Simulated scan of single mutants.
Amino acid sequence: MHIRPGGMDDSGAIAALLSDLGYPATADSVASNLSRQLAHPDAELLVAVENDAVIGLISLHFIPQLALTGDYCRISYFCVAPEVRSQGVGAALEAAACGLARARGCDRIEVHCHSRRELAHQFYYRQGYTESPKYLQKSVRADQPE
């Protein structure tokens, strides 16, 4: 297994991983979003590959801070194919993400992980993550009233 930057040729495999996470996706819908992410200077996508097949992904965003010295890194999507879970793929992707975060001057890495994803929580705790204050959100979609 090796880790490399994700690319447009990975759209189909990424769509399958995202669908497994509960985000129905197609290669076409992923390709549109992926092209924007790959062009963004503060975003990275890493994929884990084994035998020429993408078996995991981690999507990262690097965010400047105003009050503190370092920036921070946020994991936006992280998925490992079900058939290779608990084989070190997720740990390798997370370690590579931490390396990128350090290289970009980040002082921390964070992830929002829904409360229903209890197995994912166990993984993050094993990697050294701790809970932080409440996470709030508000939709700003144009098709929803304010």
Results as ranks from 00 to 15, higher is better:
His2Val: 11
Ile3Trp: 03
Arg4Lys: 11
Arg4Gly: 02
Gly6Arg: 04
Gly7Asp: 01
Met8Gln: 01
Asp10Glu: 06
Leu17Gly: 07
Leu17Ala: 00
Leu17Val: 00
Leu18His: 14
Asp20Glu: 06
Leu21Gln: 14
Leu21Ser: 13
Gly22Ala: 02
Tyr23Val: 02
Pro24Trp: 09
Asp28Phe: 00
Asp28Pro: 02
Asn33Glu: 09
Leu34Val: 01
Ser35Glu: 04
Leu38Lys: 08
Leu38Cys: 11
Leu38Arg: 06
Ala39Arg: 01
His40Tyr: 15
His40Cys: 13
His40Gly: 10
Asp42Ile: 00
Glu44Gln: 11
Leu46Thr: 10
Leu46His: 14
Val47Gly: 13
Ala48Asp: 04
Ala48Lys: 02
Val49Leu: 08
Glu50Ser: 03
Asn51Trp: 08
Asn51Lys: 15
Ala53Met: 15
Gly56Cys: 04
Gly56Ser: 13
Ile58Ser: 04
Leu60Asn: 12
Phe62Val: 01
Ile63Asn: 07
Gln65Val: 06
Gln65His: 10
Leu68Met: 05
Leu68His: 13
Gly70Thr: 05
Asp71Ser: 12
Cys73His: 04
Arg74Ala: 10
Arg74Ser: 15
Ile75Phe: 08
Ile75Gln: 09
Ile75Gly: 15
Cys79Gly: 08
Pro82Lys: 06
Pro82Asn: 03
Glu83Cys: 05
Glu83Gln: 13
Glu83Ser: 09
Ser86Ile: 01
Gln87Gly: 07
Gly88Cys: 07
Val89Met: 05
Gly90Lys: 00
Ala91Tyr: 15
Ala91Gln: 12
Ala92His: 05
Ala92Arg: 09
Leu93Val: 06
Leu93Asn: 07
Glu94His: 12
Ala96Leu: 05
Ala97Pro: 00
Ala97Leu: 00
Cys98Leu: 11
Cys98Met: 11
Leu100Tyr: 11
Leu100Val: 03
Arg102Pro: 05
Ala103Arg: 04
Arg104Cys: 12
Arg104Lys: 14
Gly105Ser: 06
Ile109Met: 14
Val111Cys: 07
Val111Gln: 03
Cys113Asn: 10
His114Phe: 15
Ser115Gln: 09
Ser115Cys: 13
Arg116Thr: 08
Gln122Gly: 07
Tyr124Thr: 01
Tyr125Ile: 14
Gln127Ala: 06
Gln127Arg: 02
Gly128Ile: 00
Gly128Glu: 11
Tyr129Asp: 04
Lys134Tyr: 14
Tyr135Thr: 00
Lys138Val: 10
Lys138Tyr: 12
Ala142Gln: 03
Asp143Gln: 11
Gln144Val: 14
Gln144Ile: 15
Pro145Lys: 00
Pro145Ala: 04
